[in-house]
Each structure stands twice: as C-alpha cells, then as structure tokens.
C-alpha cells in the first residue's frame, strides 16, 4: 500500500512539474522540479483531493508548517502519515 501511495504522489507531482514520474527522486526539491509557489499550492490541493486528507500548509511560513516540503521524500512521508492518521 505504501508503494502505491508513493507512486500516486509521484504521479501527481510529475503532472504538476510536467515530467515523467521516474524523473522524480526522493531528494528532488520543488525548486529542482520547477514548481513555484503557486504550483506548490496547486500540488498540495491535488494531494488533498487524491487522498481525501487535509494538509496544513501556509504559503507565508512554509518552514513552520507541519507539512515538510523540503523534498519529495519529506512530502511523501508527510502524506503517508496523514493518510495513516485518517485510516486510524
């Protein structure tokens, strides 16, 4: 299941970045992928819709958010955590 979540996240981000999912690695940052601030907000919305979760993220203070957007690995981990919390 975890891999499925990971691949679904990657395909969402890939679509936003106009890349193929296999071009995205865990250490890719949003900046590496060419995702700007509006693209990031759009990606977060798409993840919320895909997994029916609510992601705490304020574009004014991305560092203070519980949702770590440093790179794909942290984004995947955070989404997995929220999906697990929802299932619990």
């Amino acid at each position: 299941m975890t891999d499925t979540i990971k691949s679904r996240i990657k395909s969402i981000i890939a679509e936003q970045a106009m890349l193929e999912p296999d071009q995205i690695s865990d250490d890719s940052t949003p900046e590496d992928l060419g995702i700007d601030s509006l693209g990031l907000v759009e990606s977060i919305f798409a993840l919320e819709e895909e997994f029916d979760i609510s992601i705490p993220f304020n574009a004014n203070e991305p560092d203070k958010s519980d949702f770590d957007i440093s790179n794909m690995g942290t984004i995947i981990a955070a989404v997995q955590r929220l999906v697990a919390q929802k299932a619990a």
Binding site: V41, I44, F57, N58, A59, N60, K64
Partner: peptide
C-alpha cells in the same frame, strides 16, 4: 493558503498572512 489564522501583522518578521 495565504491567510492568517490569528492576526494581520504587516512587516513583522512573524507575519503569517
């Protein structure tokens, strides 16, 4: 996601929307 949940603090380093 540019709105503050607590206050409008323009120019303050801890502003959050």
């Amino acid at each position: 996601r540019v709105m503050s949940k607590d206050a409008c603090r323009p120019f303050s380093a801890n502003r959050n929307g």
